[in-house]
Structures are given as C-alpha cells and as structure tokens.
C-alpha cells in the first residue's frame, strides 16, 4: 500500500491534492530563470521584436509540427512497405542511409541548394556550386555501403541456413 501511495504521488507530481514536496522550490527556480530570460529577452527583442519572436517560437512549432511529423511519416512509409513484403528486419538498411543523407541536407541546405553560391564565391574565392555534387556522392556512398552490408548479411544467413530448408 505504501508503495502505491508513493507511486501515485510521484508519477504525477502536480496532481496530488497537496503541493508536491519541492513545489515551492520549483516555483522559485522558474521565477529566477524567467527573470534572467526577461533580462536577456528584452535585449534579444530590441530590434525586430516580431521577427525574432516569430523565429524563436516558430523554430519550435516548425520542428514539432512539420519536421518531426514529416520524417516520422516517411519512416512509417518505409517500414510499412518493408513490413508488407515481410522484410521488417531490413528497415535499418534503408532508414540509416536515408536519414543520414537527409541530415546532411538539413544542416547544409544553404550550401547544397546553391542559394548562397554567389555570396559564397565572392567572399571565399572558392567555387560555390560543388556542394550539391558532393552531397549526392555522399548519399550514393551511404546507400551503397548499406546495400553492401545487407548483401553480406543475406549471404551469411543463406550459408548458415541448414540444407533441409532448401
């Protein structure tokens, strides 16, 4: 019984009838944190306050409601296709190279897409149109490496399989 009480109390610390222990401390901690947020925040918003606030909140919204659902859906689609073919175990062989390639594209999108190519060339004296090609080659390498690993695994499985199964 005692354990049960502890459990109900702690897994939902704020629903208990009386304030959770440390609740006052938490509120003090938030107050302190928000004071610092406010001090830096008025400086952050001193220029284009609307634009900055939009970026700050928009970053969280775009991540949580656009980027994450998109890659989760893409992942579900891949898993679904492989599942339907009875190849669920192969998921990682597709997921890993696709996600790594997508990650590189996400991080280096301005360079890969060429949207800053002109400014980049003018500033650094180096060609700005090389990044798309490099990214495509890396992507090809990632998928090729994954295919190679899968082929090796399939061969190993085939060899290990007892002849009776054939």
């Amino acid at each position: 019984m005692r354990r049960r009480a502890v459990r109900r109390h702690t897994s939902r610390p704020w629903t208990a009838g009386r304030p959770a222990p440390g609740g006052a401390l938490r509120i003090l901690l938030f107050a302190c944190s928000f004071a610092l947020t406010g001090y830096a925040g008025v400086r952050l918003l001193a220029g284009d306050w609307f634009g900055v606030a939009l970026w700050f909140v928009g970053a969280a919204v775009v991540h949580d409601f656009v980027l994450l659902p998109l890659y989760a859906l893409a992942d579900r689609a891949v898993t679904g296709v492989l599942d339907a073919g009875g190849r669920r175990k192969w998921t990682m062989y597709v997921r890993v190279p696709a996600a790594l390639s997508g990650l590189l594209l996400l991080v280096w999108f301005p360079l890969i897409s060429g949207r800053v190519a002109e400014r980049y060339e003018s500033a650094t004296g180096m060609p700005g149109d090389v990044f798309l090609g490099r990214w495509l080659l890396l992507t090809a390498g990632l998928f090729a490496g994954s295919a190679l690993l899968l082929a090796l695994r399939l061969r190993r499985v085939a060899k290990a399989r007892p002849p009776a199964v054939h």
Binding site: R43, L44, A46, G47, D48, G51, V52, L54, W55, W108, P110, L111, R115, V116, R119, Y120, A123
Partner: peptide
C-alpha cells in the same frame, strides 16, 4: 554558411 536569413544581426541574436 553566410545565409543571413535571420531577423537582424547575427551577434545580438
């Protein structure tokens, strides 16, 4: 990446 999309100067932001 020299992509100054953000709303203001990089340093204060």
């Amino acid at each position: 990446q020299l992509d100054y999309l953000f709303p203001g100067s990089f340093y204060p932001l």
